[in-house]
Each structure stands twice: as C-alpha cells, then as structure tokens.
Design a protein around this nucleic acid. Sequence first.
DNA 1: CAGTGGTCTAGACCACCGA
DNA 2: CGGTGGTCTAGACCACTGA
Lengths: 253, 253
Amino acid sequence: MRRKTSDTAVDVSGSAPLYKQVEERILQCLADGEWKPGEQLPTESQLAERFRVAVFTIRAGISELVASNILVRKQGKGTFVARHSRQRQRYQFSHVYGNDGTQIFPDRTVLAFRKEAATEVAADKLGLRKEDRQTVYHLTCLLTVEGAPASIMDIMLPTRMFSKLTVRAIRGAQENLYAVYQDECGINVIRVEEHVYATAAAQDIAAALKISTGSPVLRVERIAYTYQDVPVEYRIRYFDAAKFHYRTEEGGV
Amino acid sequence: MRRKTSDTAVDVSGSAPLYKQVEERILQCLADGEWKPGEQLPTESQLAERFRVAVFTIRAGISELVASNILVRKQGKGTFVARHSRQRQRYQFSHVYGNDGTQIFPDRTVLAFRKEAATEVAADKLGLRKEDRQTVYHLTCLLTVEGAPASIMDIMLPTRMFSKLTVRAIRGAQENLYAVYQDECGINVIRVEEHVYATAAAQDIAAALKISTGSPVLRVERIAYTYQDVPVEYRIRYFDAAKFHYRTEEGGV
DNA sequence: CAGTGGTCTAGACCACCGA
DNA sequence: CGGTGGTCTAGACCACTGA
C-alpha cells in the first residue's frame, strides 16, 4: 500500500518519479499564471495534500526549482515565486566587468523606443513564426558609468507578449529591466543564453561609445527565455573593450 | 534521543547542519587524497556508520557534491570521485564555439614546454608567494580545427604541484588536459574562472593564427582551481574572432 | 503563540548492476 | 542473487517569522 491509484494529482503508471512530476506540475502552474512573480505558493503540506504525495516529495520537487532560481524559500514565511527584484540578486545575469575587476552597475538612458517589423535575424532568435504578426518593440539605450558611455544596447521584444509595456515604465525602472517585464507584462525571464563576439567598432557604435572607429569592442548578444523555453527578449550590447570584459565562473564547491 | 553526543564524527554543538558537515568532511577527505579521482567512495551506509548519522543525511551531503560535479553517483554501482574523463563530459569547461554555432573540438600541438620563472602576473594569478620558488611550467600549444589554426594557448603550472608532469604525457593526451593533471599529478580541477577580452591581434598572435595583424581576436584567460580554492593553472588563449565566439548559459529549468 | 520551512531519523520498496 | 544508489513515506523536532 505504498501508493494510491486514484490520484487526482500525479501519474503513477511507471513514468517519471513523483517529485519530477511535482516539479513539472508546479512549472505548469507558473506558466499558466496561477502563481505570479512575488506571490506565495501554498504551503508544502497543502501541496502534498493537493498532489497526494508526502511532504518530502513536495520538498524534493520544490528544491529543484529553488536551485534554478525559479522559486525562493523563506524560512518561517513560505515559498514564493522568484522576482527580478530591485535589491536582491540584481544583475543576476550580468557578466560584464570593468577591466580593473569591478562589476559595473550602469545607468540607463532610453534613446529610442518604437514598434517596428522584426528583422529576419530577430524573428529567428525570438522564434516568431511567419503566421504571426512579426512586430517587435525596439528599445535602444545608452548605458553609462559615472557619466561616461559604457555600452550601447538594442533590445527586441515581441509586441504580442509585451503589449502592456510603456516607455514610461522603462524610464522609471531604477534597476533590472526584467523586473519591469514581470511587473508590467507578467513575463518572467528564467534563463538567458549569451554569445560574446570580438569585433572592430563600426562607425555608429564608435560614435556612441566615443571611441575611434575600428577599435576593439565586445559584442554581447543575449536571448532571454521564459517558462517552457519560450524566447522573449533579444538583446545586443556593445562595450568598449579597453574598459570592459566578460567574466564567467563554472564549477566549485 | 535524536542525536548522540559521543560522536567520533560530526560536531553537534549547535553549529552547521549535519549534512553540511558531512559535505565538508568528504571534501576534506578528497583534498587529503583519501579518495582519488575515479575511485569509489564507501557506500552510503558505511559513511552513515562512520559519521554516525542517518543515510538520508549522508545522501544530502553527497547530493551537493554531485551537483557540483565533484562526485558522481552510479545506480547499482556506487559513488565515485568525478574524473575529467576522455569520453563523458569532455570539454566540461569549454565555452568557445564556432560562429556557425557548432562546438569545437580542436587538436592540440605542443609548441614548447619549459620550466621558467613565473612572471609577476602569473605568480599573482597562481597565488605563488614570494617565499616559494616561483617557477612554473610554461606550455605553449597550437590548437587546430581540421588542420586550420584556431587558437594559440599558453599555460602556466606551478612546478611544485606538477613535478611529475611530462611533455610526453601531454603529447599523448587525446582529450582534456585536466585528465592528465589528474592521472599524472593527482590534481583535480573543480572550478574555473574565465575572463574574456576583445583585442586587436598583436603581430606574433596574428602570425600564429594566420590572420592579419590588428584584426579582432578573443582573448580568453582562465584560472583553474582545485579543492579549497587553490589555483593550479593559469591559461591564456587567443581565438580568431572572425571564426569563433564565446557562449554561456545561465538559469533554466 | 501558531504556522512556516529546515533538518533529521528509521525504515520501506524500487531499479540497476555485476557475479 | 546480493549490493548499490533512487525514491518515498510518516513522523519528529528545530529555527524562524509575524501577529
């Protein structure tokens, strides 16, 4: 009598482990918007009852999502959907550092925000199908550090998903843009993929960064994904290579 | 009677959780060389007995080390110290991709291997103290993909740690150099830190890569660490930016 | 104080491995 | 077949939170 067969919750017929199914179910609830960023999930006991498994099994499922920064546990309070908050873990995905080794926290100035037809490349990166209206919001920003230009940034966002986005919200955002995506559009970025290229600065880039044409720049392309691997943002940033580099870490205790 | 006070194994006096202590203890055994790369650890029951905790607690500790790629579990066989094997997970730390999106698996040609005084930079990166003999093995390799030069690589290794290293072993290695470090010198790399710079190719680099002087190159610096954050390798690679880029991923289910 | 997640135990059965 | 890790249960106490 180890398992019950009349579960309304989890499948038992020899498939994946229960805790994996729990994880999957929770992920589905998140994708469906049942629990939105910042909100509290039911307690572990309640989830155990709902899914008809032991608390341990719920914990195992939640643990995987906590490790992925999708949920956060707060002892004594509850389990919550992670936010790209202004304070905590801000710049979670930022890998660009000053060449003196310090992490940078640039200021953002919106240079342009317009709706336009997606370029072929952008449509491809964002997985926009021909059938869809292939329009995107195109945001161009200048990033500065202590007043000096550090980077020029172009962002493409599918208009279909970001219909509620306003330039006002972007301008008002003090920190992470992903917090804006969450708050304004209910879109939760949970994974990013970055490609880093070394190039010589084209004329327009050089002008924006106030460096000479042809000097080395880092080009950082990013595709950001939400649940179920749906791409939501395509971003290109250029950095003056004389001042900045890209840093990663892998492995470790 | 939840815990015993006469443990020979773990500390109970209100400090870290037992499973963290287990993790720490295992890590210490690894650093001490009690279990070497590829070897099998005692079974979970045996460890539970040795550390005087429940199997669950052992599992929790081991799980963290498995997540860090330091141990591997094989169902039905046992738990083993992870190896930088020739087949599985080879190029665990490699983030360089062809610009067409394919991961590269270059061939390695040793151009030079000599013992020399560490430069100031290298001594710094490798944490060599003034009191120590600051000598390093300096390995220079050419990496090629289908015969075409892809990268020039310089590696600095403290001679004190790598006294058993031979150029023969390096030349004979088909795959990952870290497997050589393990097999020949008993040194286990568990973490790497990389810094990626965009630069214009200097004359010697350009010549080695058969590109024109001043064209954009990626410079990838790496510091590799073993247990307890001891740096063991300082590596610099240059790639033709027209053919290669650097790729990372973060987050995700 | 009650309720939450955090840690831990004892014990069960399962899936896989190799002799 | 016995031994390994993989999953799961039921239940306990602890540490933290906020009313």
